[in-house]
Write a protein that binds this DNA or RNA. Structure first.
Lengths: 216, 216
DNA sequence: GTCTATAATTAGATAGAC
DNA sequence: GTCTATCTAATTATAGAC
């Protein structure tokens, strides 16, 4: 019943100079893992080649040098992160503050359990001095998307009395992101565990109780 | 007769080229800068030696290898960060929520302008997979200190109705820390600037307005 | 395009004179 | 402890066969 329509050997072209897609895919997939695990400098082209099951010269036939390989890999991975979609602004804006917080919390809960995302964040931050353009790409494609959505929510909910929607959006997002960094990347979960649900509840209290305030 | 001109133990005469008080100090100081700028793997012992103005073998007479040098350097720097003191719990607990937020905001404002702290954070995060013990040290000596202080504040202020002081403390600290990472380390300040004062105001609104709530 | 083989450089680390 | 000099291994990158 399951017919694999995928052509594993040859497929589309990615420009005037076509490569067999499978090899390039092998390299990209393996290089991502090795780079995410070791960072840029500690990753050798030999290890990438071994992990990809190709010989080193093959990598150089697809990518100019180590730097270009790294940039291409991380760019690709970053673009993939916008699958983490906050795209449906219309729907979000319509839900209640409680539901809004639940939804955001759920997004970050999946992110908190995604070990590859932890490694990705670690590398983007760790290499942000040598590769600032990658950090900027991450800011623009991932962070800004989420922030704009949350910001739009507060803009459309004046009853919450939050006069700076952008800053309010940052408080929400920043609380969750820093939790992931602290607990999962820095290893805080082994020292002082803090569950994401507890942070969600605090934010719910802080945000939702505002509907009970006597209007100014 | 061999006149030992190499014994500088008497005070006063530290010549530049002559015999500085401690070569180890030179090495530590220079190595910190080089490691913070390049990370662990991208830093070569040659560069450290050049920056310190000593020859490579001298480094190996003080430190077993590159790894031990890095650990010693970062440990030392981490301990230095607790000068960022939240030590005076007693005083903090007594102040008003508004003053409390102002004080925390000021702490992070200085941190936001400390470029060396940015590099330090970048390295601790970036190398946290290879050197988890350094990340743990940072969590225990720096993060936990600040968190405990903020947590104690909410414990002693039941009128704010925050039933999970630890999680509440994280929301405050996480909002500011993530702001520094986003704006200064990832370069967000060049894309979507967000001043620390705006975040402070949102948190002030969220926290301080709670005293106006009709008690449950 | 892919592989074998290797060039050219640099890395971490050490031996021995003083 | 410090320096001169060097060793060994690993690194990035390429030339040439097919």
């Amino acid at each position: 019943m399951s017919l694999d329509t995928r052509n594993p050997t040859f497929a589309g072209e990615d420009g005037p100079r076509a490569h067999p897609r499978s090899k390039r895919e092998q390299i990209v997939k393996a290089a991502l893992q090795v780079f995410l695990e070791n960072g840029y400098a500690a990753t050798s082209m030999n290890r990438v080649a071994d992990a990809a099951g190709v010989i080193k010269a093959t990598i150089y036939s697809h990518f100019k040098d180590k730097e270009q390989l790294f940039v291409a890999i991380i760019e690709e991975a970053t673009i993939g992160k916008i699958a983490f979609d906050f795209n449906d602004k219309e729907r979000i804006i319509a839900i209640s503050p409680e539901e809004f917080m639940d939804e955001i919390s759920n997004k970050f809960h999946t992110l908190e359990q995604d070990a590859e995302y932890h490694r990705f964040l670690r590398v983007v931050i760790g290499e942000s001095e040598r590769f600032p353009e990658l950090a900027h790409l991450y800011v623009k494609t991932v962070i800004m998307r989420g922030m704009e959505c949350a910001s739009a929510y507060f803009e459309h909910h004046p009853e919450l009395g939050l006069e700076d929607p952008q800053a309010a959006a940052h408080v929400i997002a920043g609380s969750f992101v820093s939790l992931v960094v602290w607990q999962k990347i820095l290893g805080g979960c082994a020292i002082a565990p803090l569950e994401i649900g507890r942070v969600k509840n605090v934010l719910k209290t802080l945000i939702c109780d505002r509907t009970k305030l006597t209007s100014p």
